[in-house]
């Protein structure tokens, strides 16, 4: 390299290799994040050349306004769904990790929804859940007419319908994470336990469960952050109608439809703080090993 000393070379290569990536990181991660905090105390509308400081007005408005807290509470539906999804995926991961016939087929099948295009997958359910749609017809074919419901119209049901679509899409992801850890547990531990007289439940309780503690912690965290950031499924299937608006949808709507970037920033800051808080909590509870 132009006969430079190694020391000079090193300096050049460090600069050359880090400059652009770090530039991008700051432009698209740190600068916007810091801007969020600043914008959250202004009344900026997205166009005006000046941003007027308004103190904590946006935060106060946010706390008092049910249109904003409602979507935040919708997170709970998805979190409950995510917990059910975790339990189910653990069950299926344990099953496909045994000598069961057809285990690879089942694993593949349950995982496939995760790699599908988010919009396509959501629209599948938009069609599936229609009144007199495939789901209703399918239930009728099974003789379960009594279960038929207006899946997307009834505001008591619609959020659970969306959660169903979410579980459908993400179950395989949890399954593969669990499966990876299960595979890494040495088989001879199970064999030693079998010889001692441990049944399947004992084996699960005394060998499997202690070995997957960390991954469960990690998955709960992912589930929590995931439920806070739900966006595509309700955005595409219901467009937020019937009380299915999520917090991310409300934030984007506040900014881009109502042009209240100040309030939207405050909402984003709130979300950011919740996520960070939860991550710290998780680190404290489960340690740093994950």
């Amino acid at each position: 390299m132009f006969n430079l000393t190694l020391k000079q070379q090193q300096r050049i290569i460090i600069l050359a290799f880090l400059a652009i990536p770090l530039g991008l990181l700051f432009t698209f991660s740190y600068y916007p994040a810091s801007q969020l905090f600043y914008m959250s105390v202004t009344d900026w509308d997205g166009y005006a050349p000046v941003k007027n400081l308004v103190g904590l007005d946006n935060y106060q408005y946010m706390v008092e306004e049910p249109d904003i807290l409602g979507p935040l509470l919708n997170t709970l539906y998805y979190f409950v769904g995510a917990v059910i999804q975790l339990v189910l995926s653990l069950w299926f991961a344990v099953l496909v990790n045994t000598k069961l016939a057809g285990r690879n087929f089942f694993k593949t099948l349950l995982f496939i929804p995760f790699v599908l295009n988010a919009v396509a997958a959501s629209m599948v359910f938009q069609i599936f859940y229609q009144v007199d749609g495939a789901f209703d017809n399918f239930l009728a074919a099974l003789g379960l007419d009594a279960w038929i419901m207006p899946w997307l119209m009834d505001s008591d049901v619609v959020n659970w319908s969306l959660v169903g679509a979410s579980v459908w899409r993400y179950l395989g992801f949890n399954l593969i994470l669990f499966f990876g850890v299960l595979q890494s547990i040495p088989q001879d531990q199970y064999e030693a336990a079998k010889i001692e007289g441990a049944g399947e439940w004992d084996q699960f309780r005394y060998i499997t469960l202690p070995s997957i503690k960390l991954i469960i912690g990690l998955q709960v965290l992912l589930a929590f952050v995931g439920s806070l950031s739900v966006f595509e499924i309700p955005m595409i299937i219901t467009k937020g109608a019937n009380g299915t608006k999520t917090f991310v949808m409300a934030t984007l709507e506040t900014a881009f439809n109502f042009n209240d970037f100040g309030l939207a920033s405050a909402m984003a800051v709130l979300l950011l703080l919740i996520v960070v808080l939860f991550m710290i909590l998780q680190k404290v509870l489960f340690g740093d090993k994950a």
């Binding site: 990181l25 698209f28 991660s29 914008m39 950031s229 950011l272």
Partner: peptide
Amino acid sequence: LAYVIAMVVPAVTTQVATFEV
């Protein structure tokens, strides 16, 4: 450290400000 912290920040939340950029 910059990379570690950036991982914690969920991209969905910052788009309101990223849009400006």
